[in-house]
Nucleic acid binder design. Structure first.
Length: 517
RNA sequence: GAUCCCGUAGCUCAGUUGGCAGAGCAUCUGACUUUUAAUCAGAGGGUCCCUGGUUCGAGCCCAGGCGGGAUCACCA
């Protein structure tokens, strides 16, 4: 079914036909780019290239750029436009008499539009109004835009044509990126964070590995998986919810430090903090424990913040948060006591339940003591932890893969870093006792039988690996999306994921996709 | 899943007690060789989300639906 075109689309399609008639190729093959807009602006030198009132420049500043037309000011025999490339925008001055016969009047004025991608060569100069610009001597169309671009115009705080519809911005991220430089900037910063993290880990000698996304047995976290099917083997497979168990197999295999930066998938709800596929960095280091890992985390996050902002500080709304080392280390029960005034240490399940109820939580019979403690923490403590803090020593039943605490009964050597009221990472001294691990898995299987859809599966092969002997090790998982939110000051995960999951688009524009084989 | 809010031109939004569908920007035509929200003169553009109801008359009131957002709950 043919889509109806808007008036502006009709105009552009008519222009496309005219271009063909005029013998102008509307979609080019490339352009020899010598400069980006920002470089020209940064390296322009009035003394050499001419100030606005200078007679003749000492030397011509030859440039060749390519980009998108973002605005046009057309006059009789000369025009201005703003060209946007990846680096930013620069003004271009186009004169009829500098271009081939007829090009200015028939092609440039009539057939080019905002949104078209062009190549420009010429020389940089400073206009009478003082703006460094490119005096075009050659203009070529590289790609005709058939849809109008919602380009913003701004003057003295008044903004016209701004796209504020979040849905539009997420669905048509390519448009969002064109018209919002700050959105481009967030994703450049995301790349800086990931490459900085990779460098940090590589410098320490840890090896980047790749483990299966499709897993016959999923594990390593408490979450519901996506299920799929392999036709040739006729077997169900799960998209990984974590990398953990495979990475620890590699520690068994003799690697002393391995990490993986990858997508994990969890079949759960969407929110400001949750997308069904998200990016995780997991790291495992042999012969280290969780105390050592805390030092590594604070150093890594501080390093990344400095790389991004020049100082170990981030902002969230009005708030400035210092990420400078060292971070406070606070046992979970102390944190709860500090914020609620209640000491939960050593309390039995029913006593915990009544304290939680007094605090105003709803407790149902299915919740074990670990779950209740977790609820109290999540409700009354975590949201109030703004400055970075390591919360340590969690109940054993919440952490089936963590090593029992060396001195504290019923707890494991686990920590989460909390910043700005949200978990940034999760880590522990890894459980390497195969007998204990088997019984923890069995507890999980029992939970699963009682209907806990997030309980872990028993992974026989992982136990086999542990039975060969795994060195003591520290493990870490960092949510890259949330780290990026923190370091770039974004308050929705959708603003740090290029293409967040959305409901399918209503059938108006999108042809219904046929089902796969 | 629950609650609240929103849906009018390409974009942002007005739209009075229910009485001819509006503005800015964008688009089109013409003028203009240093503009920058260019300017000046003119023009076109609407399934007011959908369906039904009330009414002489509905963008507005009512009911149902669809789409979206925000908050809450599970999870990183």
């Amino acid at each position: 079914m043919a889509r109806e075109f808007t008036e502006q689309e009709e105009v552009r399609r008519a222009a496309l036909d005219r271009l063909h008639e005029e013998g102008v190729r509307p979609y080019g093959y490339g352009w020899d780019v010598t400069h980006h807009a920002e470089e020209v602006l940064a390296s322009y030198d009035d003394a050499k290239h001419g100030a606005e009132d200078a007679a003749e420049p000492v030397e011509r500043f030859e440039v060749s750029l390519a980009g998108r037309i973002m605005s046009r000011r057309i006059m009789g025999k000369a025009s201005f436009l703003h060209l946007q490339d990846e680096s930013g925008q620069i003004q271009v001055y186009v004169r009829r008499d500098d271009l081939p016969e007829g090009f200015y009047n028939t092609v440039f004025k009539k057939l080019l539009d905002i949104g078209d991608i062009i190549g420009v060569t010429g020389f940089a100069f400073r206009t009478r109004m003082g703006e460094v610009s490119v005096h075009a001597e050659r203009v070529e169309l590289l790609a005709k835009a058939l849809r109008p671009l919602p380009v913003e115009k701004e003057t003295d705080g008044k903004v016209f044509n701004e796209i504020t519809d979040k849905e539009f911005r997420y669905r048509q991220r390519y448009v969002d990126l064109i018209v919002h430089p700050d959105v481009r900037s967030v994703f450049k910063q995301r790349a800086t964070i990931i490459s900085g993290m990779r460098r940090f880990l590589d410098e320490r000698g840890y090896i980047e590995v790749e483990t299966p996304v499709l897993q016959p047995v999923y594990g390593g976290a408490a979450a519901r998986p996506f299920k799929t099917h392999h036709n040739a083997l006729g077997m169900p497979l799960f998209l990984r919810i974590a990398d953990e168990l495979y990475l620890k197999r590699l520690i068994v295999g003799g690697f002393d430090g391995v990490y993986e930066i990858s997508k994990d998938f969890r079949n759960e709800g969407l929110s400001r903090y949750h997308n069904p596929e998200f990016t995780m960095m997991e790291l495992y280091v042999a012969y280290r424990d969780y105390g050592w890992m805390m030092s590594l985390v604070e150093e890594m996050v501080e390093t990344l913040a400095i790389a991004l902002h020049g100082k170990p500080e981030v902002t969230s709304g009005e708030r400035t948060i210092s990420l400078a080392r060292p971070w406070r280390r606070l046992p979970l029960f102390d944190a709860i006591a500090e914020k609620t005034g209640r000491d939960l240490r050593g309390l039995e399940r029913d006593a915990l339940a009544s304290v939680a109820t007094e605090l105003g939580l709803e407790v149902d019979g299915a919740m074990g003591s670990g779950k209740i403690i977790d609820e109290v923490f999540g409700e009354f403590v975590e949201p109030h932890l703004i400055d970075p803090v390591f919360i340590t020593d969690y109940p054993v039943e919440l952490s089936p893969l963590a090593k029992r605490h060396r001195t504290k009964e019923g707890l494991v050597e686990r920590f989460e870093a909390i910043v700005n009221g949200k978990e940034l990472c999760n880590a522990f001294s890894e459980l390497n006792d195969p007998i204990d691990q088997r019984s923890r898995f069995e507890d999980q299987v029992a939970l699963g039988r009682r209907g806990d859809s997030e309980a872990m599966q028993l992974d026989e092969d992982y136990l086999r690996a542990l039975e060969y002997g795994m060195p003591p090790a520290a493990g870490l998982g960092v949510g890259i999306d949330r780290l990026t939110m923190l370091l770039t000051g974004q308050d929705s995960i959708r603003d740090v994921i290029l293409f967040p999951l959305l409901k399918p688009e209503a059938a108006s524009e999108q042809e219904q996709a046929p089902d796969g084989p």
